[in-house]
Design a binder for these strands. Structure first.
Length: 485
RNA sequence: GGCGGCAUGGCCAAGUGGUAAGGCAGAGGUCUGCAAAACCUUCACCCCCAGUUCAAAUCUGGGUGCCGCCUCCA
């Protein structure tokens, strides 16, 4: 498949270092707060990448770390009057809950920084020994950026350009203002570990270098994360790892775009910050996941409730079709007929287009378009008299059913029983729109009475009344069904 | 100031050299007592200007607008 590599700034054919085997590392969260929908996007995007690579038959080892020691965590602990370990435990737990709901698979390894202090010390010491890092009198250790020739190659900046910026204040003990910390001397009241340089804690960047090396043989095939991690985080990881290893750290660098609100980045200061929990209070997890897949992963995606409503409607339409198809396929009487070549060709063509979309840098937005086309085809078969009772129709439906199932596994959607999903969706909508169901039921009964009396004027008036409440009726052979518009 | 991204119908969004996928919304039709759902039909010359080309939304140059990174950040 083609994957966009931030390092080369173009799409490249993805070829693993070892045939058939993919080692992938994605930067996880710092566990100091509930995860927001930006975290959700990153998690979903890389989850789909893992699923797709596995679908292609590759043996993927996936690592996603937790940063569990950091200024933000310490601050949060002080705010909440809790220990930093409690904070970390709470928010890692919350992360897992959120991700499970979103259908994001657990990583094969989910290492925490504090479980690998020794590895980080070892790596830092190795960098000092090679002249790539130095310790200071107060017990900090810094990476010497000037000692690493490739510094800036990922983010496309030169040290001189960066230093021209006026906003970088030289640290007192740094040789160079751009040098970054591998180890920070402990401040009073902060967690610390013993090290050759005294009590302290690791810097942020070193954890990913140390932990990736610990779990797999470098180089990585893919290193991923949010766009904002390119600089300084990933740049620094490259410097550390490549300086220590003497060879490439990761073959492909994959970065997802942001979730925005009103075309701006989410931030606490702008007050447009949405946690996953906020959204799941009024939308099903699968709707959020579906929404996140409606744009190609590198583009920014603008979050809004209107957009969520659109995603929800589309998802509902697909599930309704899945339900109808499932029901139809349970029939055991079909009139003999040869497969309809035109329809089968159309299915094959759609399957090809779906695959091409996924092959093209994981274009899930395009892939969903093809899924919708297949759904329309399913509905057409179900509606076409004759065909919907013949073996030709059954053949087509069975094929579509298989494909949709397969694609759903890759995208992490369509995994639920349609009936169950649709019922849950209705409940979610009732609660979100604060619908008074007893009132609805009562109106429906009144309408049924009117209809029984052939008073269609009254019957239609009640329908209009219900429509004004956002309720649509369906008169089916099994009785009246209502749903939300 | 340095680096980078984006601009496609009412809204969202694919497409990156051969004359515009899909979703949501709208219009007409089939179906229905009337509806709903579904299906069919319909609805765009792609921010502006100039250039390259037989051919550009798609390449080049310029302009305008928006966004991100350079500081913790998915």
């Amino acid at each position: 498949m083609q994957l966009y590599n931030t390092m080369s700034r173009k799409k490249e054919e993805f070829t693993p270092v070892r045939a058939g085997k993919v080692n992938m590392y994605v930067c996880g969260i710092t566990a100091y707060d509930y995860s927001h929908i930006g975290h959700a996007r990153s998690a979903v995007v890389f989850d789909v990448l893992v699923r797709y690579l596995r679908y292609l038959g590759l043996d993927v080892t996936f690592i996603r770390n937790f940063t569990d020691v950091d200024d933000k965590i310490i601050n949060r602990a002080n705010q909440e009057g809790a220990s930093w370990t409690d904070i970390v435990g709470k928010y890692i737990g919350a992360f897992h809950e959120d991700m499970d709901k979103l259908g994001v698979l657990r990583a094969d390894f989910e290492p925490k920084a504090t479980d690998h202090i020794t590895d980080m010390i070892t790596l830092s010491q190795a960098l000092i020994d090679k002249g790539h890092a130095y310790s200071t009198p107060s017990g900090d250790v810094y990476f010497r950026v000037r000692s690493f020739e490739g510094y800036g190659k990922l983010s496309g900046r030169s040290l001189d350009d960066m230093q021209a910026g006026a906003r970088i204040a030289p640290g007192e003990e740094k040789e160079d203002p751009m040098d970054f910390a591998l180890w920070k001397a402990a401040k009073p009241g902060e967690p610390y570990w013993d090290s050759p340089w005294g009590k302290g804690r690791p810097g942020w960047h070193i954890e990913c270098s140390a932990m990736s090396e610990k779990y797999i043989t470098l180089p990585l095939d893919i290193h991923g994360g949010g766009l904002d991690l390119i600089f300084p985080h990933h740049e620094n990881e490259i410097a550390q790892s490549e300086a220590a290893l003497g060879h490439e750290f990761s073959r492909y660098w994959v970065h997802n775009g942001f979730v925005q609100v009103n075309s701006e980045k989410m931030s606490k200061s702008l007050g447009n910050f949405k946690t996953i929990r906020d959204i799941l209070a009024s939308y099903l997890p699968e709707t959020l996941r579906f929404f996140l897949l409606t744009r190609q992963y590198r583009s920014p995606i603008d979050f809004s409730f209107d957009a969520m409503d659109d995603a929800e409607k589309n998802l509902k339409r697909i599930y309704q079709s899945l339900e109808a198809m499932q029901e139809a396929l349970q029939k055991d009487k079909w009139t003999p007929a040869k497969p309809d070549a035109a329809i089968m060709d159309e299915i094959d063509k759609t399957a090809r287009l779906w695959a091409e979309s996924m092959e093209d840098d994981l274009n899930t937005a395009a892939a969903l378009g093809h899924i919708n086309n297949l759904v329309r085809l399913v509905n057409r078969v179900l509606e076409t008299k004759g065909l919907n009772k013949s073996e030709a129709g059954r053949e087509a439906l069975a094929r579509c059913s298989r494909l949709l199932k397969e694609w759903g596994v890759v995208l992490g959607i369509f995994g639920q029983e349609p009936q169950k999903f649709l019922a849950e969706l209705k409940n979610m909508q009732i609660s979100r729109k604060q619908i008074d169901t007893s009132k609805i039921d009562s109106l429906i009964q009144q309408r049924q009475d009117a209809r029984a009396a052939k008073d269609f004027t009254r019957s239609d008036a009640i329908r209009d009344e219900l429509a004004a409440l956002g309720v649509a009726l369906r008169d089916t052979p099994q009785g009246v069904v209502w749903e939300l518009l």
